[in-house]
Nucleic acid binder design. Structure first.
Lengths: 346, 346
DNA sequence: AGTCGTTGGTCAACCGGTTTCCTTGGATGG
DNA sequence: CCATCCAAGGAAACCGGTTGACCAACGACT
């Protein structure tokens, strides 16, 4: 009989603590504009805890306060990158008293459905958008229906509310590693054009290749999937007339690297003896491929936490700004890289 | 000026359509207990559409109606299996007028946090639980705070509300394939004990091995991860004194298969010449491994849709019951299986 | 002694829907 | 010609919080 199977309401806590609803509300929300005796405050907290009281989010939202919920919109959940980001966001949101919901943005019409379900129906106070791209319908919807939001990973130029990582640095790190091993013809498998982290990585790749004085630095782009990586790798492994053969590849995502491995094997080439391979994003599966994949670990978890910090600040009234996660990309050395011609194949 | 940047409310629709709030509410919810002229009904619908009206979910929930939202609790989102299930659930929920939220259940204390955030705060009408296991704290919480729910994939025996797939059949399918190729010593990498689909698959494996008269059918269990699969594979590849060497392995998850590939390669063995390998769950990455992995495709998407059907039925007042998704597991042949000794290694 | 400022709260309106019970005007029946 | 009934819709209470306005009691000050 100690348990109440029914939801305890604010009024129940109030009655039990011998105070009014208003007092309970203010005490539990930690409001300053009310003076209460410490003992009263304590009693309210105790009763609330004893009753397992949880405010009804709908009632709260209705009364003008916030829903204490955010939503993270990601382009593809089967890309484990976003799972890591999401965990960072969830955790930080919780620390700040928010609930972070996860929604997959299937692009096109569906994005508006999601927007309607979450924002127009008043379920969340703000959006963490990781699925932006040029001409995304969501961008227009946002301009018509303003709601706090930040863009993470995929930036929207000029929005002044981008939370990103130093992806240019990841290209530099990968190139320095390969160049240090002796590679002089390095190909890059980029993501789709128009997507900022993909373009930034690609630009940095070209810039740094030039400054290292590489013989050639061909780039091919493809989706962030295994298939996209395989197709781009096939392209790069077949040099144009008079062009040198690449001895190393650097991909924009982990899935692309897996696809590239497949394409390299199809050509009868070995990794790393014939071709060295470096991927972006360090996730557990990288260590279990054959050979284990050398990657550039990006601070995905921090990206999630930083994005939440930025969004909550905006919700609390501060004006947004661009943020770059300070943690630098880090090279994780495994078995997919070696000096060129290490296999001495003839 | 055609657009209203502010949320349209029920009363706005009512004013614009020249009727009362009550009428709009009833019309939009398609209630029978009210007679309205077809032209009025039509006008209400038109005005609502023109204003982009969306009912405030909180207000709705408060007024005693439902939130029109469900939550799917999964154990690990980096297991892409759950992503596919989630998509099925999301889509079907939408067809039924619900929003399906996705939450990762990090086990232990966190599960109760999630329950509080979603159920006690009144954000959802019911739970789709894919993260059950014996002694999970959520089970006790559920018994104290009843809320509509179903268990999917991982069943809770005796709950009478399990939505599952025919996992026993997947073992039979895999075994028949390997047996047909001539294998007589087949090992199984099972999931953790206590988790139903893992145990069911394992039981079926042992039963069917016996009925096929296999020489040996060793089983090792490990987490559903690459690491778990690698460790279990190492164990199975090292036969006990006097036991025969396995020529084929069948794993309970795709990640385990990837880990097993690693362990097999570490031993200097080739796939499929020395060891054949069959994994469960067909996801894109399987086709891009080297060699491409033969898998048993499970009806994950349908599992998601079936679970939503069952939960919504329960929310609408029907009594729950166990459901098995009718679609049968299907073998997807790729390059990781061949007859034993196909490589003629000495 | 009267006034004023604090401390420690309370009151009641309001948020945006849903639902139950009424009302109204015209058609129908006796 | 009056009572009845039905179709069509309206009025208002209510859900569970939040919030600004208000108030009582008490000590300090003049």
């Amino acid at each position: 009989m100690a348990e109440q199977p029914v939801r305890a309401r604010l009024v129940d806590v109030a009655r039990e603590a011998g105070v009014s609803k208003a007092t309970v509300s203010k005490v539990l929300n930690g409001r300053q504009d009310l003076s209460v005796r410490p003992e009263t405050r304590q009693r309210v907290h105790e009763v609330a805890a004893a009753l397992g009281y949880r405010p009804h989010s709908g009632a709260r939202a209705l009364a003008g306060a916030s829903t204490h919920a955010l939503a993270l919109l990601v382009p593809a959940l089967n890309n484990p990158t976003y799972v890591t980001i999401s965990r960072g966001a969830y955790q930080r949101a919780r620390e700040l008293g928010y609930l972070s919901l996860l929604a997959e943005d299937f692009d096109g019409q569906e994005a508006d459905d999601t927007f309607n379900d979450l924002v127009k129906e008043g379920r969340v106070d703000g959006l963490l958008i990781a699925s932006a791209r040029p001409n995304h319908p969501l961008l227009e919807t946002l301009s018509r229906n303003p709601v706090p939001h930040v863009f993470l990973n995929r930036a929207v130029k000029g929005s002044g509310r981008n939370v990103t990582m130093d992806v240019a640095r990841s290209s530099v790190t990968a190139l320095d590693h390969l160049h240090g091993l002796g590679h002089r013809v390095i190909g890059h498998i980029a993501g789709p054009s128009g997507i900022t982290p993909s373009e930034d990585r690609s630009d940095a790749f070209l810039r740094h290749s030039a400054s290292l004085g590489l013989v050639a630095a061909p780039v091919a782009s493809g989706d962030f999937t295994e298939e996209g990586g395989a197709a781009a790798a096939r392209e790069l492994l077949t040099p144009a007339e008079g062009e040198p053969q690449v001895t190393a590849l650097y991909t924009s995502s982990l899935a692309q690297a897996i696809g590239a491995m497949r394409a390299i094997h199809e050509r009868g080439l070995r990794i790393p003896e014939d071709i060295s391979l470096v991927g972006n994003d360090d996730l557990p599966v990288a260590g279990y491929l054959t050979p284990p994949l050398t990657t550039v670990a990006m601070p995905l978890h921090e990206l999630g936490t930083a994005a939440v910090d930025a969004l909550v600040a905006e919700i609390r009234g501060e004006s947004p700004g661009d943020v770059v996660v300070p943690t630098e990309p880090r090279l994780v050395l495994r078995g997919s890289t070696a000096g060129p011609g290490a296999g001495g194949a003839g």
